[in-house]
Design a protein around this nucleic acid. Sequence first.
DNA 1: AGAATTTGACCCTG
DNA 2: CAGGGTCAAATTCT
Length: 517
Amino acid sequence: MEPESSKAAGRMKFKAMELERLVRSEALSGCQQVKNVETQILMAPAGGLVGMAVTEGEATRALRTTILNASAAIVDKFNRVIQLLSTATRDPNSSGSSPGAGAGESSSPELGISKLTLISNTGSPTPSSPTLSSCPTPHSSSEIRSECSHAISTQVTGTNSFDSDEDTLPSPDRRDPASDLDKRKSDKKRRKFLPKCETRQRVVWTGDGGNEPVPPDDGYTWRKYGQKDIKETQFPRSYYRCTHKNELGCPASKTVQRSDQDPDYYVVIYKGKHVCPMVERYIHVPADISNVITLAPVIPRQYFGVLGGEGQDRGVSNILLPGPSASNIECNAPIAAPPYPESTEIGANLRSTSVLHKPLIDSNVLRNLLGGIGDGSDDPRLLTVQDQPQPQSCVQQGAISITTSASETTPLSLEPGLLDTIFDESSEHLGCMYDFPVSHGEHGENSPSTTNATVSYSSTPPLPLSPSTDLAMMFSAGSDVPSPFNMTWMGGINCSVSQTRTYSSTCETGDEIYYEN
DNA sequence: AGAATTTGACCCTG
DNA sequence: CAGGGTCAAATTCT
């Protein structure tokens, strides 16, 4: 009986191996295709994407952006598949099986290193499946490997090579000829280079116009341990490690460098994962933010996409390009947008284009609109245009814009940085949010003039925007928070998805407007 | 005084 | 050997 069961087990094992090999092969070849697309886009004439952002039409640019975003999405999927496979092969129950690889496989998984690298380490890909090294890329930042290749690779003219002879100038004080001192020094200074580890790259938009000395806080405490002028870049790169490195042995570190092309941006590369808790230094944002929420202006869609810059094929755009390690490149921040108009309180959901005052919508009613708890009114959908204390009259002369907004706060227990997931989930919510038609009141006409589906989130540090969303982005901020970019979060991310429609209507004080949920 | 940052030197990798 | 990452003394900040 034993031989039979072992036979069956062997067959199953073989099947599993075959399957895995197949998936790996598919994933890798698909990945290579994506990579090729990306390379072609990058190498395109007119200086690649960056140049095109300036010279080509909006449509072309949008198309290219779409392709790039699609690449990112695909690669992300691949990575997930690969990660799943790796997890599966890590299963202690199937230990020793090391499907498809034997010895080579077992060595890599616990490192949690880049998903795609994992594959290349398996040692026995199918003959047709390209190895990682066979995925050529001239662009290091979007390497298929996401090992510690700190490829900010901004490229701008101008050289700061003035420090090149630094090493050749020995400091007399430090260059003690005493050999034991030298020895001690060299022992002390022996580099503790970490093994290749996972990096996550992030582009942070500060919108500060280059004035802020440091990029926004990301919730962890860091100790700066170095700064370096990087060749052919305008701004130095700063090196940080977790403050708790010594006491808790937290291995996390990061490098931060301001983008040459747009000083509003920082490129932050994270290395290692925190084993220390995030310090709760932030104001808590209540789950129900409808009372305090401020609607910041919608950032027009055209400000999403690839960064503009010099006509280089390895400019900042390179940072943003979704390479095979796209899941590690978490965002595609908005291009610097023109000054935003003033934000409007959500209490002023009825917004007039022609009068100065803001008719109010009771926040309880608003909550009802949002599917919240009722306030005991007969019909929560009924809104009555009310006068504000001042100014005196609520008579709307001519058309007014009625902006309705529904939102849903989705507490997501995610670690910072998992933007893709957040927006994946967001879009699901969008599905249910999309329809909340407004029927007009007794007076005037209601016709949707604009519809903006918006995703808003509140976070500190500011979360980068998703490149894949086709939604206009709206930031929300509490009234006690001065800027949409200074919103707060602790641990999770309160992600609100909302749709805003603007209607034109004519109404007067006392008019009733029905909102249908 | 202790923590954090700055900065030149040192070390490692390609 | 150049470039970039890290170390650690010196300096600044709190």
